[in-house]
Amino acid sequence: MLLELKNIVKKYYIGTENELEILKNVSLSVRKGEFVAIVGPSGSGKSTFMNMIGALDKPTSGEYFLNGNPVHKMDDDELSEIRNREIGFVFQNFNLIPRSSALKNVALPMLYAGISKSKRMARAKDLLGLVGMGERAGHQPNELSGGQKQRVAIARALANDPAILLADEPTGALDSKTGDMIMELFLKINREEGKTIVLITHSEKLASQSGRVVAVSDGKITNQ
């Protein structure tokens, strides 16, 4: 298994007595090359689950292995490293670094990985070509449209050849036509590059295009 979450529990403590259990004993396994969609209404614990998969947060109890790495045992800097190497984030609102060109944005994860400048720039150029943004390498985020920004973000997510692409409502801020094009790109990357993709969405339409749908409701997985 590429990604294995076992009996994940996440609690938040509000004051002394009250504790809020967001994730209640959740388990999920994803094989390499799968395209999994995680769906659920807001407040279902979907976002917390995504943060867990993305190694942004640690479970209160339970185990999480990502590409063989025990994420549940890691400290802050180790989590940074695993995010850098094994996870490619694609956000709803792109989160590109402002005042930094598309090329530099794509190269950023490689900078944190300590890859030399010439290698970074060469690979960033290739990746921009892959997502069809080769012509816009020198443009800054504020000079790009929403769809173009998301393409750059996808190229950036692929920078360190991560174990999974983790996309959080990637079409949420785009019109439906552009959204379809972005979804096409994900499918292409899954198909042609064999990249494992975990997509978080509340859109039934997007979820239906994936290989497997995982529904989250009230902190539990209701179907796999």
């Binding site: 942004l56 950023l108 944190y112």
Partner: peptide, 9 residues
């Protein structure tokens, strides 16, 4: 965003 992309402290 930088932290999500792997920036350490």
């Amino acid at each position: 965003a930088r932290k999500a992309l792997g920036a350490k402290r």
